[in-house]
Design a protein around this nucleic acid. Sequence first.
DNA 1: GAGTATCTGTTACTTGAGGTAACGGTTACT
DNA 2: AGTAACCGTTACCTCAAGTAACAGATACTC
Lengths: 255, 255
Amino acid sequence: MSKPVNPDSEARRPAPDARKERWRKHRQARRAEFVDAAIRALGKHGPDVGMDDIAAEAGVTKPVLYRHFTDKADLYLAVGHRGTELLFQRLVPALNTETAPRPRIKQSLTAFFSVIDEFPNVYRFITGRHLPAESDVVHEDKEMIAAALATLLGDYMRAFNMDSGGAEPWAHGIVGLVQNTADWWLDRQSMSREAVVDYLTQIIWAAIDGILRDAGATVDPDAPFELPGEAHLHAVPEPAETERETTRSSGGASA
Amino acid sequence: MSKPVNPDSEARRPAPDARKERWRKHRQARRAEFVDAAIRALGKHGPDVGMDDIAAEAGVTKPVLYRHFTDKADLYLAVGHRGTELLFQRLVPALNTETAPRPRIKQSLTAFFSVIDEFPNVYRFITGRHLPAESDVVHEDKEMIAAALATLLGDYMRAFNMDSGGAEPWAHGIVGLVQNTADWWLDRQSMSREAVVDYLTQIIWAAIDGILRDAGATVDPDAPFELPGEAHLHAVPEPAETERETTRSSGGASA
DNA sequence: GAGTATCTGTTACTTGAGGTAACGGTTACT
DNA sequence: AGTAACCGTTACCTCAAGTAACAGATACTC
């Protein structure tokens, strides 16, 4: 801000000084480290940890934390992104594998359940009511999954010359169906993981099959079914540990 | 605490003084009044209202509020109960009407959607991430609806000599399916209420029908289907505006 | 009617967690 | 050598939740 830049300087902006660049990777690593600490602290003190506790868990004091996260919400958002990353790493490949419908459903469910089974605390924290509204990452995630599902369903339906208007509500419905059942299962653990997954596979396929049937189509759930130009949920879309602007520039030069 | 009671006095505890009794109804009314104010204030200032604002909205100051609610969480819990009451008033009759399966599904969905359509702000607040975890009423509500659904499904399934193990996960699944779709619809409003309800009716019946079909049974969705000793979700189970203990007795005389 | 239990309400305070200011030290680029 | 970015600290500010302490009404009990 101190050196006045001439108007056309925007063209050659890269690296006026390497000292800034040098730290980029380091900062990301540090953020990740704090996210780990936050998760550990969350496990220790429960979901109402203070920033002091998190900082202590990371072996530093509060202001250090605030150099990397603008906010408690920002930190929790990063925790959320960590969860998203974990989930999508396993879910995306499962969803995108082009096999027969039913195994595809089942392997996607297995992916999902394996993640929440492995990190139940993180999952509960992220989906639970403990984070501030700004850190809500679940909504985005669900939107993303639902969007992928919607195009998938829509394509199938159009392939059968059906009206595809139901694709979107149904996609959101299926996402909710899975999540709510997962929450319930995680709470109760009243049956094995395989059992829930099987029950869910059954109901989801039953639903899809029923809808196809309503339109006069029948599909063998275990026969490979290829679609021209299949919809893909491309890798994890948010860079997960990307740092938000942390410096508090007091009012960025309007006009 | 000042007058020492003799040991056996617990037997004849009712009404030593009518002055206590006299106010009971009044307190309930007052609480309800504050709940109204809270909802109004929520509408005005958004979901991060302060207790001062709520008090002001009710025409009083904070301490008055705290005489009726132990806590912000307590107040929000009462707001939640109000919502539950609103919902169950319409949902319970719809669910319990014994008609053919499909119209029954549809009228239940219509009931649900009409409520959230009529009170979107309340709905969003209650289901959203703004209340403290202690005020979560949605979880209970969903459990209750799912439980009713589970017995219903279970009874049907047993009537067909099917294994009823799926009833519970499916019940929770359907609840989640509806809620998530409702959230999506409320956000986007990209189709009419009737349309979502129809799509949901279709997928839910498709799912149930498919499951029955897997077991070799077929049911006409529009033919009345009576079941011996049908499961009922009995009226709204929580007294909605019941007051929690508000007096802060400083440490109840241990030993 | 005197006494009092329970409400009505107020202003002024305490508390605690989130967040910040201001300082000093270290590394490695220019 | 100079400096731009980091490392880290202690001590503070802020603001909303929640509390103390006080004073006036109403309507029951004796």
